[in-house]
């Protein structure tokens, strides 16, 4: 066991340490992990499934899985890879369960995002028509991302919003780095087709 621990490279991951501390009964370590990953996972799931309320529920479910898995936990990957893989599986299951009914593209303007954007933009004194244009762009972005096939969408979200490396995406999605290259190339091409054409009609 001692020999194994010395050679396990994942033990250098501070989040793995927190998980092992939680395994030893330290609830505060679990909460530290929650504070670090909850907002990120919420956004990851939200962008993937499209609905805020469902994303909140699924994020709670991710942490429930982590909580339940603690007694059997063995560090076999970076903590981030492990927890994102759980989130990915839970999101995919949700889409299978409610095929076609999860993604709601009309949702963004009634949610907190509009206000959040205004808060950010107010100090710089953005003109209302510019604000409208940005909202249109955001709507187009959401639509373009949701029009992507699931695996391309997943790769785009992990790369663009979670800043994962190709290697990390490959590990999380359980595919090869070559497959990630191909997924992202096709996804970027699709997004370009949709977004550049769409926004050129606005401006």
């Amino acid at each position: 066991m001692l020999f194994q621990d010395k050679t396990n490279p994942y033990l250098f991951d501070p989040d793995v340490h927190l998980m092992l501390e939680f395994q030893g009964g330290d609830k505060a370590s679990f909460e530290a992990l929650m504070h670090k990953y909850y907002p990120r996972l919420l956004n990851f799931i939200h962008r993937f499934v499209g609905q805020r309320e469902i994303a909140e529920d699924l994020t709670q479910e991710v942490f429930m899985k982590v909580y339940q898995a603690v007694s059997a936990y063995r560090p076999q990957s970076k903590f981030q890879t492990w927890i994102y893989t759980i989130a990915k599986n839970i999101s995919l299951n949700e889409l299978r369960r409610n095929r076609g009914s999860v993604v709601s593209l009309d949702e963004p303007f009634s949610s907190q995002e509009g206000e959040l954007k205004r808060d950010v933009e107010d100090p710089s004194g953005v003109r209302p028509d510019e604000d409208l244009l940005r909202q249109e762009t955001m709507r187009a972005v959401r639509q373009a991302i949701h029009a992507l096939p699931e695996n391309q969408r997943m790769a785009v979200i992990l790369r663009r919003y979670e800043q994962f490396s190709y290697e990390e995406i490959a590990q999380t999605m359980r595919v090869s780095v070559e497959a990630v290259k191909s997924l992202l190339s096709r996804a970027k091409e699709n997004l370009k087709e949709k977004l550049i054409k769409n926004t050129e009609t606005f401006s």
Partner: peptide, 16 residues
């Protein structure tokens, strides 16, 4: 490609 990739940044994060 650069422009469309940058545009994705318009989809801001939400708070839990």
């Amino acid at each position: 490609l650069e422009r469309s990739w940058k545009m994705l940044g318009e989809w801001k994060n939400i708070d839990p």
